[in-house]
Amino acid sequence: MDSQTMLKVAVVLFALTGAGGLLLAGIRFSSKRQPPASLAMLHGMLAGSGMTLVIYAGIAAGMPNGAWAGLILLGIAAVGGVVLNLAYHWRNKELPAPLILIHAPVAVIGLVLLTVSVWK
């Protein structure tokens, strides 16, 4: 598989991750209860798969600077997701709204940068 195809697959994986994230946030904000752990794990695994593809494509064949910037932002969002999962969700504590409201736009901006760079 060539690097361009890997990057496009990664964008699709991140888009699916974002849809799952919207569902997770919707559950959290509408019902004030924890989203299902299985959905949170799927969200993280899709994001991890996309990150792996982007990193591999970037190292193996190189990619535009905008894609690297998107990857960095997605990495920052991933750290926020890990904090949400391990510090709150895993311990059955209520997910903090401010952290969710930071995690989401950072991930969206990263995905937009990556998508624009890939489909340039």
Rank of each mutant, 00 (worst) to 15 (best):
I27F: 07
I27W: 04
I27N: 01
R28V: 06
F29H: 12
S30F: 11
S31W: 12
K32R: 15
P35G: 07
P36V: 04
P36C: 04
S38N: 05
L39R: 03
L39W: 01
M41R: 05
M41P: 00
L42I: 11
H43R: 07
H43N: 14
H43A: 03
G44D: 10
M45K: 00
A47F: 03
S49W: 01
S49F: 11
G50W: 02
V54L: 06
V54A: 02
V54Y: 01
I55G: 00
I55Q: 01
Y56T: 13
G58E: 05
I59P: 03
I59G: 09
A60S: 14
G62Q: 07
G62I: 09
M63C: 04
P64F: 04
P64C: 09
N65W: 11
W68S: 03
W68Y: 12
W68C: 01
A69F: 13
G70M: 01
L71G: 00
L73V: 05
L74V: 11
G75M: 05
I76P: 08
V79C: 02
G80E: 06
G80Y: 08
G80D: 13
G81M: 05
G81D: 06
V82R: 09
V82N: 06
V82Q: 06
N85R: 10
N85L: 12
A87D: 15
A87W: 14
Y88I: 06
H89K: 10
W90L: 13
N92T: 13
N92M: 13
K93N: 03
E94V: 11
E94S: 15
P96C: 13
P96V: 12
A97H: 08
P98W: 13
L99Y: 08
I100P: 08
I100V: 15
L101R: 07
A104I: 15
P105Q: 13
P105A: 11
A107E: 00
A107Q: 08
V108C: 07
V108Y: 10
V108Q: 05
V108L: 15
I109S: 03
G110L: 06
V112F: 06
L113T: 04
L113E: 03
L114C: 09
